[in-house]
């Protein structure tokens, strides 16, 4: 029968295709995670997350509890974009920033998010592009990032004598509220890993 042979043929080809795609899939799963690209610079882990990214991913069971208690609903979850990070939480301060309320750390059932005192939280550190920030390029006064900062003077302040030119300091925990509030369309303030921050080089 022609239909039967056609179907058999089809199934055989589909099986072949699936079999052929299998190595690619396995390789994809086993591939090392890429270094953070520039687009990803604002994908932060929630406060209290394990420092080591792979340790965090293996500790997180993807239950979503941290997201469910988050008052500003800033904790989102990696999905199809995630790869092996699937269902793990992230905060994108450009959309919504963390308010450091500590609820996610309290609710996390695993050690993925561990209770951390506020000033020991390390989601990253803010970085300011002085070639774009309004006060830094003498395009008016702003100070939005300084006034929103929940950590105060130890984390961000103004440059001495030059009012409204913001300076990030070492106590910054990278909550991203400054990123959320920044009025500049190109967001000259963003969060980077602490090791990549240039805060130490700033003259205060």
């Amino acid at each position: 029968m022609q239909r039967r042979s056609f179907l058999q043929n089809l199934i055989a080809k589909a099986t072949l295709l699936a079999g052929a795609a299998l190595p690619y899939g396995v390789a994809r799963v086993l591939a090392p995670t890429e270094a953070r690209s520039d687009e990803e610079r604002n994908y932060l882990r929630p406060p209290g997350a394990l420092k080591d990214e792979s340790a965090f991913v293996s500790a997180c069971i993807g239950c979503g509890l941290c997201g469910e208690v988050c008052p500003p609903r800033c904790i989102r979850f990696h999905d199809r974009d995630g790869g092996d990070k699937v269902n793990t939480p992230y905060i994108n301060p450009e959309e919504k920033a963390c308010i450091l309320c500590d609820k996610c750390m309290e609710v996390c059932p695993t050690e993925a998010l561990t209770k951390t005192p506020r000033f020991d939280i390390d989601m990253g550190i803010a970085q300011i592009d002085r070639t774009a920030c309004y006060p830094w390029v003498d395009r008016g006064i702003c100070g939005a990032c300084v006034s929103i900062c929940p950590l105060g003077e130890r984390a961000i302040g103004f440059k001495m004598w030059y009012q409204y030119q913001p300076i990030v300091k070492q106590a910054c925990v990278g909550c991203g509220l400054c990123v959320e509030v920044c009025p500049h369309p190109s967001l000259p303030i963003w969060i980077v890993e602490r090791s990549k921050g240039t805060v130490a080089g700033h003259t205060v």
């Binding site: 293996s58 997201g67 999905d79």
Partner: peptide, 27 residues
């Protein structure tokens, strides 16, 4: 164990349903 992430959660229906209902409604 190989990938270092809890992959069983991605094919376990009760976990999927709880998660996806939250994603759908809240996110």
């Amino acid at each position: 164990a190989i990938t270092g992430s809890v992959l069983v959660a991605t094919i376990y229906p009760p976990a999927i349903i709880g998660r996806e209902l939250y994603y759908t409604i809240a996110l």
